[in-house]
Nucleic acid binder design. Structure first.
Lengths: 108, 108
DNA sequence: CTGATGGTTCGAATAATTTCGAACTATTCT
DNA sequence: AGAATAGTTCGAAATTATTCGAACCATCAG
C-alpha cells in the first residue's frame, strides 16, 4: 500500500486562486454539478451529469478540476465518495462569490 | 466600405451566458484588465497588460474574449477605443457577481 | 475469498485556447 | 496627401483542456 487512493489532496484555503475557481465554474457540466451540491453534500453516485452515458473517468475528471480549484471537497464515504461545496473557505476568500454564481445559475 | 471595422458586435443582455462570463474572467490577464476598468471607462491605450511587451494582437484578442462574453463594451473613440464594463447588463443578469469578483480580486 | 459497486489514474487522441507576426483599416496631425 | 497612432483580423504554431478506454484500488455483500 504505497499510496492511499482514498485520500485526495485539497488546496488549503489560502492557496485558493480566484481565477482557478472561476475557471472551474465556467464549464456548464461542472457548474451543474456544483448546483446539485448547493443544497448540501451528496454522494458522488447521486450526482448526475447531463449526459448519463458519459464514462465515469470523465465524471471523475470533472470532479478533479472542481476539487483542485478548491470549489468542492471530495472525501471517502463507505465504498463511494461524499462531495460538498467548500462554502466556508470560499466565503472567507471570495465573499459573496459562490452565492452569486449559484443564484445566477438558478435558471440555467 | 463593405464592413465597418469600427463597430464591433456585442451580445445582447439576454444572450449573456454565465459560463462565458466566468470563463472570460478566469484568465489573470483578462481579470487584470477588468480591474482597471472597475473605476470607470478607459481608453484601450491606457489599459495596460502585465507584460508591456505583448503584441497588440494579443491584447486585442483578450479584449475580444471579454467583449464576446459580454463583460466589456468596446466602442470607437477618436482614433482609439473606449472600454467599459457592462455593469448594468451584468447586474441585471447576474446580480452581485461582477461586484464580488472585483472585490475578491482586490489583492491579486 | 469472490464478485459487484464506486471511484481514481494513466496515456493517447482530439478539441479548444493562446500567442504571435503580418496585413489591413480608421482616425488624426502636419 | 502622407505619416503616425491605435486597433482589428487572419492564419499558423504552440500550449492546454477535454474525452475516453483500460487498468487499477477500496469497500461491501455473500
Amino acid at each position: 500500500m504505497a499510496t492511499d487512493i482514498t485520500e485526495l489532496s485539497h488546496p488549503a484555503r489560502d492557496d485558493l486562486r480566484l481565477t482557478n475557481v472561476l475557471f472551474a465554474l465556467s464549464d456548464p457540466e461542472r457548474l451543474a454539478i456544483v448546483k446539485q451540491l448547493a443544497d448540501g453534500p451528496l454522494e458522488m453516485a447521486q450526482c448526475h451529469l447531463s449526459d448519463p452515458s458519459m464514462p465515469k473517468s470523465t465524471k471523475s475528471h470533472l470532479m478533479k478540476v472542481l476539487r483542485e480549484a478548491g470549489v468542492i471537497r471530495n472525501e471517502p464515504l463507505g465504498r463511494g465518495r461524499r462531495l460538498s461545496i467548500r462554502h466556508e473557505d470560499l466565503e472567507a476568500r471570495f465573499p459573496g462569490l459562490i452565492g452569486s454564481v449559484l443564484n445566477a445559475s438558478a435558471d440555467v
